[in-house]
Amino acid sequence: MASRSQDVKTPLAVLSFSADLFKARERDNGSKGYGCTLLFPKTVSLAALQEAALSAATEEWGDKAKQWIKDGIIKSPFLDGDGKQGLNQKTGERHKGYAGHTFIRCTSGADYKPTVVDKRRNPIVDAGDVPSGSQVYAVVNAYTWENEKNGKGISYGVSLVQVAKVAQGEEILGGGGGPDPDKFFEVIDDEGDAPASTKSGEGAAGLFG
């Protein structure tokens, strides 16, 4: 049975595939669900996200999880925008905005549509109001998975997204129940990174490359 970390708030991220937050789509395995991709500049600390991933992996596979992550036995959720993972599988071209970033793919089941809110925590219901390339904070959790085809891995679920800045012009990229927004999101007056309180997790530093 998959293990799940506690919910954590991400640093400021660039949102990609934003339409999937509003309309469930069919996945490769035939299931349907919501999701998005979150891009982080490689200069930004992802310690809290790494700690969540390590927590879920350790709960599922015990103390050996650390070494398995280092050895690549457990597939990392942190993907390289400068590598093959940042390329469009159909065209072979690099997705716009992915260079220089680490990214994570986030999912949510068909019965658990993520909540999307604006700076004032007002709900956003129209995908057109949040184009890919917008800057957001998100509440995510790490969870483990294992199957015969792909082995072992860690992925992220997404439950809440707060839009800090709507993408304009060249910034735009192509391409149910849950936590209370009031618990995680402050009213945003100024743009900036996540509060220092979200940047914990030194125990996972270095494990995910």
Rank of each mutant, 00 (worst) to 15 (best):
E146N: 04
F17A: 13
L79V: 03
Y34M: 08
H95N: 13
S197R: 10
F17I: 04
A167K: 02
Y34C: 09
V8N: 01
R121E: 11
S55A: 15
V166S: 00
Q67D: 14
D20G: 01
Y156A: 04
F103I: 03
A57H: 08
S18E: 02
F22R: 00
G92I: 03
T10N: 08
N122D: 15
V125T: 14
E146K: 12
L49M: 13
D189E: 14
K32R: 15
L12Y: 01
I172G: 06
V158I: 13
S134E: 07
N29P: 05
V8C: 04
K84Y: 06
A167F: 00
S159P: 11
D182F: 10
D63H: 13
Q89P: 11
S132N: 04
T115R: 15
R105G: 04
L46K: 06
Y34I: 05
A205Y: 14
D180Y: 14
P195T: 00
L46V: 11
K199Q: 10
Y137C: 10
G62S: 10
T198F: 10
S45K: 08
L49N: 02
E186S: 08
V117R: 00
I188N: 09
S108G: 07
V166R: 01
G206N: 09
K32Y: 13
A142V: 02
L46A: 05
W61K: 04
L49A: 06
A164E: 11
K84N: 06
V166H: 04
E202M: 14
K64R: 10
V130F: 08
K42R: 15
D182H: 15
M1E: 11
A138T: 02
Y112T: 14
A19I: 06
A57P: 05
E186R: 10
V136Y: 04
G30L: 09
T91V: 02
G92A: 10
G33M: 09
P77R: 05
F184W: 15
Y143Q: 11
G176N: 11
K42W: 09
R4P: 01
V130Y: 02
A110T: 14
S155C: 02
P123Y: 08
Q50P: 00
L46W: 05
I74M: 08
G72D: 11
